[in-house]
Nucleic acid binder design. Structure first.
Lengths: 155, 155
DNA sequence: GCATCTGAGTTGGACATTCAAACTCAGGAG
DNA sequence: CTCCTGAGTTTGAATGTCCAACTCAGATGC
């Protein structure tokens, strides 16, 4: 049965892209990873319109990628900060995959802007595609898709 | 120097997200991976508006992720098909990262819809985060970002 | 030779999203 | 009591998306 007979939206890529698929959401998540936690810092660093940031954060909280947490600095009033949840932190692989691709294909003449390093050993971190038998999968390796129980035919 | 002093858009994640960052582009690339090549097939399978598909394909061709190729079936007139370039095929890691996340966090009760397998050995393919020294990086592993020559301060 | 079909778009108007700038609101400082 | 700051909301213009209908070129049927 060809791929195109299966419903396009019943697909983990489609479901994930549904959440991350706009110009800003990925960048908000990236900044949260990098320790930017407060509304105004995010707004200022990203250059995003304030109402859009409000919506994106609300969406991320809704989808359980981000937790809106109250914090209080001594002598100041209570404020909010936005922190990635476990599910949010698991997007790191996605972000690094995007970064690896950008480093290879969109770096300027000065090379990539940042490198991500393992804190314990200092070596650079990258994504790899590997099969469960341990073979490295490169772009020319043939792979095949097989429908599982969760698949649905198109209506 | 804190992350937030660096320019947000000078970042491989931002550059890649610039291209892939809308609801449709990723899905178009996914379908191209899966062998859907023709305009009408894409339109039908994705349920995307025809004018948007035209724009997305033009953008992908512009960005060198897709090649628009003329082909001719015996006795029919010349037609176009859209084929991923090398750079486009290298997005596979990104797609699999999205799929892995969706499989873990957004699968319905019936489980994930498809599995991706290595054609040679049949084992499932997944993304891994690994440092160059060979340590597996899991979501709780500490990593650190270091600016390189390509970095730019914010204006 | 003329009407028809099919693939691959274009065009037009309705609807939704994004943007920037101004406004609100609460609590602490002076 | 007024000002300041963080954290949003509101508002109207600009832009993007959607759908349906239209175009256009090269087979094909008769």
């Amino acid at each position: 049965m060809p791929w195109s007979d299966y419903d396009s939206s019943t697909c983990s890529i489609a479901r994930t892209a549904q959440i991350l698929g706009d110009r800003w959401t990925v960048l908000v998540v990236r900044d949260l990873f990098n320790g930017v936690r407060r509304f105004d810092e995010l707004q200022d660093h990203l250059g995003i319109a304030r109402d859009i940031l409000t919506k994106r954060l609300a969406l991320l909280v809704d989808e359980d990628l981000v937790e809106r947490r109250v914090y209080q600095v001594e002598g100041a009033r209570a404020r909010h900060e936005y922190v990635l949840t476990q599910a949010g932190r698991e997007l790191r692989t996605v972000l690094v995959a995007l970064m690896d691709w950008g480093d290879h294909h969109r770096a300027g003449p000065a090379g990539p802007p940042v490198s991500l390093q393992h804190k314990d050993c200092g070596a650079e971190i990258h994504t790899h595609l590997v099969c469960d038998a341990g073979h490295e999968i490169d772009p020319s390796t043939r792979a095949e898709l097989n429908p599982l129980a969760g698949a649905r035919l198109r209506s």
